[in-house]
Amino acid sequence: MSLGPGFGWHRYPALIAGAAVTLVLVTLAAVSLAWTPYPVTELVIARRLQGPSAAHWLGTDQFGRDVLSMLMAGSRNSIAVGFVAVGIGLTLGVALGMLAAARRGLIDEAVMRLGDFTFAFPAVLSAIMITAIAGPGAINAIIAIGIFNIPVFARLARGAALQVWSRDFILAARAAGKSTFRITLEHVLPNVAGLLVVQATIQFALAILAEASLAYLGLGTQPPNPSWGKMLNEAQTFMSRAPLLAVFPGLAIAVAVLGINLLGDGLRDLIDPKLRRARA
């Protein structure tokens, strides 16, 4: 795959749209670290529940906080959740999957059954259980989502790695006396990396959705840390007075998830043009 001058960007509209949205999201999150139009902790009751205006582009909430500033700060939260949850799933899941593929036998069976078992608990249900035990909070929500990601990556990595293990060049590497660990690191992992990146993108989007759900239920990020799901929860009370409060955070979630999903689809097309033609 060369990205030379002949690379036809126009053939990958999903990739471009997705990358653009993701870039905006990350930029907003980065900017919000240093600057937001208004401080997100600033409560000004005098200007509560205002509609959009020149001063407050997206209006203010029930405490007079600037919605745009809150959304910017909330993007930080979503991205952080996505990274940590997917990170947990990716590192542990891929390690398990690689081990299962390299060793086969009992370990393989155990990893697969563990996956079956985890699938019995829907992510939100297991998150509810974990927060029931450990109390609500962003960290617990992230761990719950991350745990659910482990079997997803374990299965994917195992399946893809098994295919790589059956190829000729692995035999050559083995004949050269390389250890299983080195072969995994040098040959198997690079060959499945593309697939994993695509799946990680999709899981990232799912993690944002799951965290938003938990935060909406009051089980995720706790105040005063802004989070999109939490904002929707609070907006519900004031929905007849300030309907837009219940619109913007949801829009932010939907656009972010849509963008990241498109990026994932686009990456898959890029990595596997055959698949793209088959689906088109």
Binding site: A205, A235, S240, V247, G250, A254, V257, L262
Partner: peptide, 22 residues
Amino acid sequence: GQLGLAVPNFWFGLLLVLVFSI
């Protein structure tokens, strides 16, 4: 289908309330 993947159901529920109830 892309929208279905991206729109959280609880927000969709809120939107339905906004339109059909409020």
